[in-house]
Design a protein around this nucleic acid. Structure first.
Length: 612
RNA sequence: CGGGGCGUUGCCUAGUGGCUAAGGCGCUUGCUUUGGGAGCAAGAAAUCGGAGGUUCGAGUCCUCUCGCCCCGACCA
């Protein structure tokens, strides 16, 4: 390689980059790349999103595709560094895996076939199948099957902060649900289940420290393992009305779960079966109508939900559709996620009317009784354990009285009921509550799902080749920022906590002469404090409004009012009503003390949760 | 993918088929102002998302298309 000449642009640029880098903890408002917006863009549907746009943290490029602007990136970097520190603390090693994957490894695990359009595919110039990785289990398993060959190389934990692309059918709510996003994903490798559980527990606690240090309120809930194919899983939820997930919690015993898997206590009364009776029930298409018409409680009825499941052969990729009938007691709803799991289907969609009729059933008056063979029947235990329920007769305007599972029809019994607030806790019998939440992180015990299908084996002490036991753990970085913006704002704008705000101090100079402001700016900068300095020739109102909007935690105002007394005005963004004052001579010390105080406020509220 | 809505300057909006597409914010220049989005004056900035069509005449009506948003389906 030829030596680089001193005069070349490379050296010149490198010098610039270095000198710039050393000063990059501070910024002048007159140089900030983005600008603030006085009005909310029409796309902003939540306050957090609105202020991220108005403060110039992000800009939308397309549906679910955002640019992160310099201010936003500073917050993102702080979040990422907190994540790095906590992942390093539990033994994680950072690495980086490619966004573009050859499809081959995805075919090995079968997910090339089982994942629908959410994964984008293309062919390279030679015609090879490629995918945009929406997660990295395949890639990391490929890496570890060459790196890990012996129990001596276990356990391991690697992680990355990398772009993911998921072609979500409906991106929404700003950074909450996007198609391209940065995710921290870590992957654990162990020789046995005990090792996996240890790493899982380490993540469980590390995640609380991460969200705690970001000052994002969060709870861990039991969750569905979905397409990850594992068994044990938790999701970390930021509870908020803007959330799309429904969380079921029990205030009495602390049970929490995503509604997709939440269980609850069902009560049934077993009676002696009575004989079937066909009953004319004109226009009783809904359970409400039926119960009213017959003057019986809804608990004495059974209703059917008709879905078509897609089943994919994970080795050949061949798809097959099958009609699934879910049966549940009339007073409850079917949780489709549970139904899909019970059916072991890759996907579910509502059945068309003709599909239902073709199977010998009648929509509105349907039940598995007398249906044609070959359909999958999944019956909730609420129905299987009950007696003499009223169910559809598969004939328009007719129902059957006294139907009994086992006698009149059969099928697989499973819990497919949707939990809701007001139901009874399965653990302690207390009243369940429900709330909305945003999933900001998740942890999965994968087991050997990937190592087995991809041949990631190690040789154990006993000389036997065994599949590596894996775990997978994710945190959505941009989503975390979006949640923080949602949690920390008021009518004036953002007020992110000190640990994730783009700068620590917002210095507003209101005096004509630049000297005082410049001097303070340099002082703070030399003390290693991250300052955003409003040096613009703008009116006080504009500067204050922008400071409120961007929401840097500590605001220093240099104005003639306090300057005369040798003082600088101080406001905390979290409490604009109160004005403090620092003596000019003690400014750096006072600011540092205030920073410590803010940081301690966050540190002291972190709860060190452990998984039992 | 189904249902609905919206595309007019950087942002927010107005605009009966009829004159040179209007206003606010922002931007530029000058002067004034300087403790909560200040004032005066003068400017720049729009192929009205795109393509067809109807018409003497289309931002406005019709067809197609693209994009974005919302509800649902969907989703680690």
């Amino acid at each position: 390689m030829p030596p680089v000449e001193q005069e070349s642009g490379f050296w010149y640029n490198a010098t610039c980059i270095l000198s710039h880098h050393t000063r990059s903890i501070c910024m002048r408002m007159s140089h900030v790349f983005s600008r603030t917006l006085r009005e909310a863009p029409s796309a902003a549907d939540s306050k957090g999103y609105e202020y991220l746009l108005r403060a110039g943290f992000i800009q939308q490029l397309g549906a679910g595709i955002f640019s992160i602007l310099p201010l936003g990136l500073r917050s993102i970097r702080k979040i990422e560094n907190i994540i790095r520190e906590e992942m390093d603390a539990i033994g994680g090693q950072e690495m980086l895996m490619p966004v573009v994957n050859p499809a081959d490894i995805w075919k090995e695990t079968g997910r090339y076939f089982s994942i629908d359009k959410e994964m984008s595919r293309f062919q390279d110039r030679v015609g090879r199948d490629m995918v945009l990785a929406m997660t990295h289990e395949e890639c990391v398993t490929d890496v570890s099957r060459t790196q890990i060959d012996s129990y001596k190389r276990l356990p391991q934990l690697v992680y990355q902060l990398q772009t993911k692309w998921r072609d979500d059918p409906r991106p929404r709510a700003g950074l909450i649900r996007v198609r391209e996003f940065t995710m921290k994903d870590s992957y654990s490798f162990d020789r046995d289940v005990e090792g996996l559980e240890k790493q899982y527990k380490a993540h469980y606690s590390a995640y609380f420290r991460i969200f705690g240090r970001c000052a994002l309120p969060s709870i861990a809930v039991g969750s569905d393992s979905g397409m990850m194919g594992g068994k044990v899983a938790h999701e970390y939820m930021y509870l908020s009305p803007i959330g799309e997930d429904t969380i079921i919690t029990c205030p009495s015993c602390g049970y929490t779960a995503n509604r997709q898997v939440a269980v609850f206590k069902k009560t049934h009364v077993k009676e002696a079966p009575q004989s079937l009776v066909e009953k004319h029930t004109p226009a009783c298409k809904s359970i409400e109508d039926l119960a009213a018409f017959l003057s019986i409680p809804k608990t004495q009825t059974a209703k059917a939900l008709f879905m078509v499941g897609t089943f994919v052969d994970s080795t050949t990729g061949e798809e097959r559709e099958q009609l699934i009938v879910g049966v549940i007691r009339g007073d409850m709803e079917i949780e489709e996620n549970k139904l899909q799991n019970a059916a072991h289907a890759n996907a579910l969609r509502p059945a068309h009317v003709d599909e239902i009729k073709a199977a010998g059933m009648e929509p509105g008056f349907g039940s598995p009784i007398g249906a044609k063979k070959g359909i999958m029947v999944i019956v909730d235990d609420s129905v299987a354990e009950a007696s003499n329920l009223v169910a559809g007769a598969n004939k328009e305007d007719y129902h059957l009285l006294n139907t009994n599972f086992g006698r009149d029809y059969t099928g697989e019994v499973a819990d497919i009921a949707s939990a809701a607030g007001g139901y009874l806790c399965a653990t302690c019998g207390g009243l369940l509550e429900q709330s909305k939440g945003v999933e900001v992180g998740n942890i999965f015990q994968l087991g050997t799902r990937y190592s087995q299908s991809m041949g990631c084996y190690f040789q154990d002490e006993d000389g036997v080749r065994k599949p590596v036991i894996m775990g997978s753990y994710g945190i959505g970085v941009g989503r975390l920022l979006a949640c923080l913006a949602e949690e920390y704002h008021d009518e004036q704008g953002l007020k992110l906590p000190i640990s994730t705000a783009p700068y620590q101090v917002h210095l507003v100079s209101l005096v004509k002469e630049a000297e005082v402001g410049e001097r303070i700016y340099n002082q703070l900068q030399e003390a290693g404090i991250e300052v955003l300095y409003d040096d613009r020739k703008e009116s006080a109102g504009v500067k204050f409004a922008d400071a409120d909007l961007i929401g840097v935690p500590i605001r220093l105002t240099v104005g003639n009012r306090s300057l005369k007394e040798g003082k600088v005005e101080v406001k905390l963004r979290s409490n604009l009503g109160e004005t403090l004052s620092f003596a000019m001579d003690d400014l750096v010390v006072e600011v540092k003390a205030q920073l410590d105080k803010l940081q301690q406020g966050i540190d002291s509220s972190i709860h060190f949760a452990e998984l039992a």
